[in-house]
Design a protein around this nucleic acid. Structure first.
Length: 262
DNA sequence: CGGCATGTTGCGCA
DNA sequence: TTGCGCAACATGCC
């Protein structure tokens, strides 16, 4: 599910369903993903609260409730929110459900997460994971000058730096991989070795993937050019797509048209 | 059965 | 101090 695009799509859904709604019931069924971990404490914090706004920064969702309460949601690897009937039976991957009422309308939203790497955190203050996030490419914009400054501050592979949430918020393995392919830059290039033109290309690449995904995602999968395509021909130059490991993550790239900066 | 997965954190080592 | 590499977390799919 989750990179900035997926999380933004979820945010829009939740905003439409939840803004102005009152939480009338909480079925927090999985202590593993909750903070506070006790389902009853978690439930008591949320029941009766009204949702003022659904925000997002990077891969984090931040629901502003009344009475100064905040609900943070990170989707981990397999998390998702979906609307459901209040009477719908619990699904295997369902970790929490919020029953909502707005006017005379009653509906529910539920948090599904097979692998349980996600988190639901009720808090009275912003959490460190939220406050330490770097600029968000969608809400803060992405400009080459700012990104150049950020990249120059690190000496790791550019792909790892792009995926560092404290540098830039929301870029994951797919977007970093595809963005660097569009920019024609080898993901192993040191971030501080990129020229001004390279940084502009990275900005264009990331923008292109983000907006393309944002347009196509709701309709269905859009086709990725190099991610998950190691061993197959590069759609741009025909060379065989390679894969290396960076920061523990598979990183596909085309040795034919993505040059390494040194 | 083994390998892999759109994420994050923490540890050990050079 | 910095930069890595790797394991771990829990589950599902091929």
């Amino acid at each position: 599910m989750p990179e900035i695009v997926d999380v933004e799509i979820v945010r829009r859904h939740l905003q439409r369903r939840m803004r102005g709604a009152r939480i009338v019931g909480v079925h927090a069924t999985d202590a593993y993903v909750l903070r506070p971990a006790s389902p009853s404490t978690f439930r008591r914090a949320l029941v009766g609260r009204t949702v003022r706004d659904v925000g997002r920064r990077g891969k984090w969702l931040r629901l502003e409730l009344d009475a100064g309460l905040l609900l943070f949601s990170h989707l981990g690897m397999t998390g998702d929110w979906a609307e459901c009937e209040p009477r719908a039976p619990r699904e295997r991957a369902e970790r929490a459900r919020l029953d909502l009422s707005r006017g005379r309308r009653a509906t529910s939203v539920r948090y599904l997460d097979a692998r349980r790497f996600g988190r639901l955190i009720a808090s009275r203050q912003d959490i460190p994971e939220w406050t330490s996030l770097g600029p968000d490419p969608l809400s803060d914009g992405l400009d080459a000058r700012a990104l150049a400054g950020l990249l120059a501050r690190h000496r790791r592979a550019v792909k790892e730096v792009l995926m560092d949430q404290t540098v830039l918020a929301g870029i994951g393995n797919i977007l970093a991989t595809e963005g660097l392919w569009i920019a024609r830059i080898d993901p192993r290039s040191r971030s501080d070795a990129l020229s001004a033109a390279d940084v502009r290309a990275v900005v264009r690449g990331l923008r292109a993937v983000i907006h393309r995904e944002l347009r196509h995602k709701p309709a269905g999968a859009f086709d990725l050019r190099v991610y998950g395509r190691a061993g197959r021909p590069c759609p741009r130059c025909g060379a065989t797509v390679a894969s290396v490991t960076l920061g523990g993550r598979a990183s596909a790239f085309c040795p034919g048209c993505q040059a390494r900066r040194r």
